[in-house]
Design a binder for these strands. Sequence first.
DNA 1: AAGATACGCAACGGTCGCGTTTCGGTGGTA
DNA 2: TACCACCGAAACGCGACCGTTGCGTATCTT
Lengths: 214, 214
Amino acid sequence: MTPAGVDTPVPETPAVGGHGAGHGPGRPRSAEADRAIVAATVHLLAEEGYSRLSMEGVAARAGVAKTTIYRRWPCKSDLVVHSLGCLTEKLETAPDTGRVRDDLVAFMRQMVDKMRRSEAGRIMPGILVELSRNPELAQAFRQGFVEPRRASMVKALRRAIDRGEIRPDIDVDLVVDVTVGVFQHRLMVTGMAIDDDMPDRLADVMLEGISLRR
Amino acid sequence: MTPAGVDTPVPETPAVGGHGAGHGPGRPRSAEADRAIVAATVHLLAEEGYSRLSMEGVAARAGVAKTTIYRRWPCKSDLVVHSLGCLTEKLETAPDTGRVRDDLVAFMRQMVDKMRRSEAGRIMPGILVELSRNPELAQAFRQGFVEPRRASMVKALRRAIDRGEIRPDIDVDLVVDVTVGVFQHRLMVTGMAIDDDMPDRLADVMLEGISLRR
DNA sequence: AAGATACGCAACGGTCGCGTTTCGGTGGTA
DNA sequence: TACCACCGAAACGCGACCGTTGCGTATCTT
């Protein structure tokens, strides 16, 4: 008797976004609960990592019964996949200053700040192992989280090419990965300090190279 | 009645290495068991990650009883800390070819291969979350695993400075982090392909910079 | 008002892994 | 030979979570 004519009694995730107007009889899903659950998931993902994230923990933090979660998502990974998709918030952006160097440095500064402080930024280390184990999660993470954050820097580099500031034959993706990778590597792997002018030094290295000019 | 005069009945980890010669009466610890346990730990660490690594799993894979493990290490994190210290195996090294570019490219090629294929190389993503949670583990990981692998590249860059190939004022650590970070970022985060001449392209970018020369 | 559905709460049986204990047997040293 | 610490196997109680169910209540649509 479901609108779509499917006879399975399972809710099958009727798409959380689709209960706005006249839907059917009965009490509608609480949008507030949706919000609280996703927020709790993101928080715990950042704080504890994927493997230590538990449905009971999410329920407790969201102030919601476990049943309320399972009514929406059949399992933990589906909940996480959906929650990652909700992270479109204010992204870091490379401004258009007219000079690559300034664009890059500004982007890096924002990025470091986000990685350290924002909840979304701290999700990274706790989710990496799962990516190789759960392709759907990996897809959601890369498409909904990684890509949008790279986009603005890719644009900045393209602008720089158009302006004739940087070589047109460079591998843009490679440069973006360098920029992001260094800071992530420091934060997650080596634990070395990131001082205030590291973005400047990196910009120098990337723009001018490390070769000794003759 | 323990030699050291400590009255605690707990074994207190009598240092695994210390059962070589005449030690005391009774059957000595099996060195083969030591080896098997550590090998199993490293394997499972690479395959499953820290959080999914279980003492029971290690025991099963090592062909050893759980008691045999607990007799040596009081808990999982101590076992892992010790096992990480046993990873000194053949490290990737930057050869001394006389040209930085060749040294760098060779180092990168080896590194990518190790990251993909070797057991030690695959440990990375599965241990990162724990580093922020367990300082002792972080210390063991960084000192016993990360540092030795950086060392050879740091040397290569110093040689290049001495030869006058690269600018003497560059931040060596930064360059190393760039080199390692990019590949790690691709493998763990973006999942983008790493083609055969990516090391070459990266070496170009780092040596010559991306600026358009006038 | 009637019916349908969501809600919180509490409890369930089940699985997993922890760290410990007991046991009979084994391989060394003195 | 006597002794002693080691070994593997098995079982233990414990706690954390899982995903599900039943219940009484709340809140919508018709």
